[in-house]
């Protein structure tokens, strides 16, 4: 394992990507440069902004604070995995309908953070939702519409689930 280059498989959105990278290659860079999945955005590259948030084994993580080699054998999910059959999923639709994005740079990170919130705590309190969203930075929306979109998606999904 201590060779300068590492050959291994990353599993992203259920698909296997055989990659060859240096140990210092972050997961965020590997997703973009080696897997060609440029939906994951890089903002600060030191864990502050949350733009690169992805899910690893269902948990939200900063892809800039993980080395790609550490993600071997783990299930990674990125924004590319959200749409279902070419159609936006309920969370993505709620972002569009609630004006939860403007420039869109932070959106992939917020969508993955929102996905984690909806999957682990769909009836999350307003206070806890705001606290959870404080993890990621957005310079356009003022956050209120992002919180509203996640709440709308939770409502839409519980309605769909009930019918």
């Amino acid at each position: 394992m201590s060779d300068a280059m590492h050959d291994f498989t990353l599993t992203v959105n259920g698909q296997a990507y055989a990659i060859r990278v240096e140990a210092r290659r972050t997961l965020a860079d590997a997703l973009r440069e080696d897997c060609g999945l440029t939906g994951t955005h890089l903002g600060c590259e030191h864990g502050v902004c949350g733009a690169c948030t992805v899910l690893m084994d269902g948990q939200p993580v900063r892809a800039c604070l993980l080395f790609a080699v550490q993600a071997e054998g783990r299930a990674i999910r990125t924004v590319e995995g959200l749409a279902e059959g070419g159609a936006l999923n309920p969370l993505q639709r709620a972002f569009a309908e609630n004006h939860a994005l403007q420039c869109g740079y932070c959106t992939p990170g917020f969508l993955m953070l929102g996905t984690a919130i909806l999957e682990t705590d769909p009836s999350i309190s307003d206070e806890a939702l705001v606290e959870a969203l404080s993890s990621n930075l957005c310079r356009c929306t003022g956050y209120a519409n992002i919180a509203r979109a996640i709440r709308a998606a939770a409502d839409a999904m519980s309605t769909e689930g009930a019918t």
Partner: peptide
């Protein structure tokens, strides 16, 4: 903002 090279070990 890229780390310097290092060797990686995963015991």
């Amino acid at each position: 903002m890229k780390p310097a090279p290092f060797r990686y070990h995963a015991p």
